[in-house]
Design a protein around this nucleic acid. Structure first.
Lengths: 136, 136
DNA sequence: CTTGACCTTCCCATCATGGGAAGGACTATA
DNA sequence: TATAGTCCTTCCCATGATGGGAAGGTCAAG
């Protein structure tokens, strides 16, 4: 199949498929005489794997490791689990950070009239803020 | 004061201060005869404002709007509040997305032995995954 | 007058993705 | 068979926010 079909079937855009090939994440497929890339069902599987990994927030480098583990039939499941759990902690940390920002901002907004009057505690807070971490 | 001191006092790196100037987020400061940038206390305030805005997850474009509202003494507080609350919703959405990824992955990891054996439900899931949104 | 810490501009890299141009290949239909 | 339309190819550029670093000018203290 051509790259377009592989893209549709895997959920990875043709653009990204070429990119993944260029950085060595996936192996270059065969080519027709006219240089068209030719993919097999197995390639689509790999692309779906990558897609799934990306959807779960793994970077391309992490995805590369996961692919290696996937292909290594003798890997220890502990290796995978460790990688996964480290990632879970990162995700949860980032989620908590975003939540903290939202909470702070929501709190500030609580005290803002939100009407035609100009005074606004949100901007007041911004203006009064001290440097986060400087001038120790 | 020089850019270095402005950076220390505001918590914004000198690199970023120059960048913010180049994209018109902040106004170009005066220069000495030797082309050194010269900042006043007011500029440090503005930089802190930007820093605070960034720390709360606003993009530079959003920060630009906030700065405009800040400087516009006749703005309605409702305008600020709307912007802020829209941002709160975005932040919470992103946080929820990350949390969902973490939960999914944590769930998969639960079923992974995490020992020397090779079989791993995490990779199995990745491999089996259907295209997220293609081929409707 | 030298040393070292500052400043200047300019270019490059990141990460993952998309846009689009210029040109070649294939397919269906008139 | 000619033509149109859709696919494919490679190549370059852009994003957003930030940092790294080079090459060179400036300033203050010794």
């Amino acid at each position: 199949m051509n790259i377009g079909e592989a893209a549709t079937r895997s959920g990875v855009s043709a653009k990204m498929i070429r990119y993944y090939e260029s950085i060595g994440l996936i192996t270059p497929p065969a080519r027709t005489a006219a240089q068209y890339r030719v993919y097999a069902d197995d390639d689509v599987h790999t692309l779906r794997f990558v897609r799934r990994s990306r959807d779960l927030g793994f970077s391309l480098e992490e995805t590369r490791e996961l692919l290696a583990l996937w292909r290594d039939k003798s890997r220890a499941s502990a290796d995978v689990k460790n990688l996964a759990m480290a990632h879970v902690r990162e995700l949860e940390e980032k989620a908590a950070e975003l939540k903290a920002m939202a909470d702070t901002l929501r709190h500030l907004a609580t005290h803002c009239h939100g009407d035609h009057r100009p005074d606004c505690p949100i901007l007041a807070d911004f203006a009064a803020s001290a440097p986060t971490q400087a001038k120790a």
